[in-house]
Design a protein around this nucleic acid. Sequence first.
DNA 1: TAGTGATGCGTACGTTGTACGTATAGGCCA
DNA 2: TGGCCTATACGTACAACGTACGCATCACTA
Lengths: 209, 209
Amino acid sequence: MKRKPLDRATIVGAGIVLADEQGLAGLTMRNVAGQLGFEVMSLYNHIANKNDLLAAMADQVAAGIETPPPDLVSLERVKAIALALRATLVRHPWAANLWLQHLPGPSRTAYMEALLQALDGCGLSPDATHLGFHAVDNHVIGYTLQEQGLTDGLASVDDPEALTRDFIASMDPEIFPATIAHVQQHLNGDNGDSFEAVLDIILDGLTGL
Amino acid sequence: MKRKPLDRATIVGAGIVLADEQGLAGLTMRNVAGQLGFEVMSLYNHIANKNDLLAAMADQVAAGIETPPPDLVSLERVKAIALALRATLVRHPWAANLWLQHLPGPSRTAYMEALLQALDGCGLSPDATHLGFHAVDNHVIGYTLQEQGLTDGLASVDDPEALTRDFIASMDPEIFPATIAHVQQHLNGDNGDSFEAVLDIILDGLTGL
DNA sequence: TAGTGATGCGTACGTTGTACGTATAGGCCA
DNA sequence: TGGCCTATACGTACAACGTACGCATCACTA
């Protein structure tokens, strides 16, 4: 049985699959090679080192961000891009963290361009446009990081809800009443989609500048 | 010469100093022990494992968040807490990332309580209060992460500005005009304090709910 | 046909976190 | 006072990691 020869794109793809399945902790060079049916050192004919692989994975993920249809314009377009980014980052929970540590590659630059051009089409002041990029980009990435951060850190907790209850139980109601109430709200799940609500606040605020 | 005996707080403190100086990459158990004049395995009499140390460091940092004076109230108080959090996270650039991966300990819970109580004093609707916490908390942490993320990832680059220029030069002006313009604005430094500007947008938006 | 560069891989090394066992010293009870 | 117990320090050792280095194999070109 003849294997297909290794190449960079294949390696990056395998890395993404592996990280999706096992998180970044499971992403070892030996695992990547094993998944492809090769030995570790063969990878290094196509990538410089692990950091290079991580950067490539981070960028490749950006290629999966869906572009809204061209007839969607103005702030609705900005919002659509934000939601598309969020969907992608949720699909690859390890990616947001990597975005923090690596410069954008071509795909992520294309996402930036799309968002910036969408903002340009909103008739905002130049300052508000510049600001809007960071506000939206940061909101999406930051929110997803917080939401999924525990996924990687507290990986493989079978009952996250019990953990939340324990967290509440560990607090003195005399000292932390507001925090207990806040966390309780999360348990009840009666806070709608706060991601989108804050996004709307930001978008509204931009028009006022 | 008699050493002071090890204890948990000392170890956590040394970890913080070490991470401040060398980043998380330099924070090895052997380094922490060495800095204190002990051997590695002695640390394990006081901490469970490295993850335990990281969680403790993450929480300890929160103890350094300054509380605004009691006469500062309403949204000004919220803003002051946000700025205090930001100052702390900037002082310890590795901390924000750890906050994503560890549950809050007592000190960070105290920060949460302070922010939540400040929001309670703003006369907002319960929904807006809940939302406000995440909007502010997320903005501060996310913004600092993006700003400092490269600190850890691209550690020890002697000339970050040259790197930015290279980044611009690597983009095709036909394809990425808006991105080039945006990055150029950063090089010119003519974008004021976008952190605070977005924070103000968020705070304004909360009052409208 | 000889040679050249790309590709796969075996071996080996340094670094990391930490399990395990042991030595020592201080406090407490007889 | 003497014996013990627990807390603390640490030496040794190991598995897992990233990766440097050198060699073998193959495809292709001159």
